[in-house]
Amino acid sequence: MNPSSATPPAVRVENLTVRRRRAVLLDSLDLTADRGVHGLLGPNGAGKTTLLRVLATVAAPSSGTVELLGRTPSSPSARTAVRRRLGYLPQQFGHYPRFTVRELVAHLAWLKEVPAARVPAAVERAVDRVGLADLLDRRMRTLSGGQVRRVGIAQAIVNDPELLVLDEPTAGLDPEHRAEFRALLRELGREAAVLVATHHVDDVAAACDRVTVLERGRRVVECTPAELAAAAGAETGGDDHGGGPAERGYTGVLHRFRRDGAVTPVPSPADAGATGTTETEGASA
């Protein structure tokens, strides 16, 4: 994370608002993300998927500024340029059941304009990275839900994206593959900006460099996983909500936000020694 460097951050969102009919899905949201893994946490309906849809150039903002990979994707040509460097796994990964894994990922590689000569190798490498090399020529309809999810991740990385947007990538994965996926996330984060929305706080704690908690379309807090874990004691007042420290911290900041409409600064483990600054956002933000 180095937002102040000369090159623009991979994701810069300012004052982003998304409305659908009368509902406000995202409300004046600010977010900056660069190379590394950035987790998005929040309860159902918090706006995680809407935010990721905007970052994947699938949904348009109602107002605010969105800058992806140094471009504002408001024009078709700018969107196309961003999409060439983008990987996206939507919450619902629709696939073609009669295709084999190889055929499906190759099809998506074509859609992502991967040069034809590179497609076979890119497909094999992407599928290998998600641990499905043995199933390359299996039909999609014969795969388990977790395996389908991993194919979804494979298609997202087949074009070696600089911005990777993953919506619930670990849904349906068994614990063993979730652990492997975290390792993959960390590896991907060394080369790209990875934004991951998930309900698994453990995944965020294990794989993410930073985390943003959303609630009702607004940002509750942005911090490091360690800071979120440290917030457990401060925010819960000693109540034991179960789960690990990060999960308790997440629950605590949500409760505090709902109660007070704002979250006070979260003390980091090293207090002033944390890499990022802890931010707060009031109800009026």
Partner: peptide
């Protein structure tokens, strides 16, 4: 097919234009 199988979201995020698809 894409609408039926829920593949529209993903298709909307790729650089190939709607016309090409």
């Amino acid at each position: 097919r894409d609408r039926r199988l829920g593949a529209e979201q993903l298709a909307a995020s790729v650089p190939r234009s709607r016309l090409q698809r």
